[in-house]
């Protein structure tokens, strides 16, 4: 087990280094493009050259890459071109906002998905099972940008219950969080629910459940004590992997509602070539994704005694 943990962590570090290299090559591969981004479109060629020499961008890619890694690890993310401030000043609060949005969504999504998945898988083929399955396929087919406008039409224009944007300009307002969370949950819960359903349905066909039923145990007790424990192992990995998808959805949803999170920051930076912000957002997104994948893998191994005791 320890050996496996170490190997997975080693793999994670290796992947992060390669991802960082990719990000670095895309954004900082050509020093003239960096200088152009920083100095603007009207800078002369001599000014670009002077800037490159002054900031050490004339050295080899290899050295610059490791220097950059060192700076990122010590928290120096560079200077934002749009905001004219250190990236770290903007970046962490944006990341925190996304953490709130994604965290609330994640908790609600997982609860909804597990409950519906277990209910559907308890009696495979029942009316409840079919209803939940069709419902979860339907919601998974409505992308965030579509449900954002459909729900805005319903709750903002028609019923006038909720605000249409979530920019939080006058302090944090939980009401503004409702629509983005709803949009993300609707699109994301279906997959976890389907996996939970499949796992639950499989457990319900095993011998020990049949034994428990034949022993005459109450149905509720069979589900709670015998089925759930084993049925929830497989969805664990899926739930951890879902965080990767949640981060994708966050980019679209934050843009849709004007929420000031890291996804909106990444988009703005990408459109205006604010390279150091792009790098920070990219590294953070991949770090969260890789970390949750690793935790998902290790957790699955730990939870499943058949693998753990091998």
């Amino acid at each position: 087990m320890l050996q496996m943990v170490l190997r997975r962590i080693g793999m994670m570090i290796l992947i992060m280094l390669v991802v960082a290299l990719l990000l670095f090559l895309i954004n900082e591969g050509d020093p003239r493009l960096i200088a152009r981004s920083v100095l603007g479109p009207y800078a002369q060629a001599e000014q670009l050259d002077a800037w490159i020499a002054k900031n050490g961008y004339d050295r080899s890619l290899f050295i610059r890459y490791f220097e950059w890694i060192g700076r990122v690890l010590t928290g120096d993310l560079g200077q934002s071109i749009i905001y004219k401030r250190p990236v770290s000043e903007i970046f962490w609060s944006r990341l925190g906002n996304t953490g709130i949005l994604a965290g609330v969504t994640f908790v609600i999504m997982v609860i909804v998905a597990l409950v519906l998945g277990v209910l559907a898988g308890m009696r495979e083929g029942s009316l409840l099972d079919r209803t939940i399955s069709v419902f979860s396929i339907a919601t998974t087919s409505v992308p965030e940008y579509a449900s954002a406008v459909i729900l805005a039409g319903l709750f903002v224009f028609h019923l006038q219950w909720l605000p249409g944007t979530s920019s939080m300009t006058s302090g944090f307002d939980p009401v503004q969080l409702i629509l983005p969370v709803l949009v993300l949950t609707l699109y994301g819960f279906g997959y976890i629910a389907r996996m939970t359903r499949a796992s639950m349905a499989e457990v319900m066909t095993t011998h020990y459940i049949r034994t428990a039923i034949l022993k005459g145990l109450p149905y509720k007790r069979i589900i709670m004590k015998h089925a759930l424990r084993n049925a929830l192992i497989a969805p664990f990995t899926v739930i951890m992997l879902q965080i990767n998808w949640l981060l994708s959805g966050v980019v679209v949803t934050e843009f849709a509602f004007g929420y000031k999170g890291f996804g909106a920051l990444l988009l703005e930076a990408a459109l205006r070539r604010d390279i150091f912000v792009i790098e920070a957002c990219g590294i953070a997104a991949v770090f969260v994704a890789v970390l949750t994948q690793t935790v998902g893998d290790l957790g699955y191994t730990y939870l499943n005694p058949r693998i753990r005791f091998k």
Partner: peptide, 22 residues
């Protein structure tokens, strides 16, 4: 497989935004 792991570790929309912006 390693290459696939690297690409798949990106949240996909983050990857799209960065590629298209580039």
């Amino acid at each position: 497989s390693f290459f696939a792991n690297v690409i798949l570790s990106f949240p996909i929309m983050v990857l799209y935004v960065m590629i298209i912006a580039k």
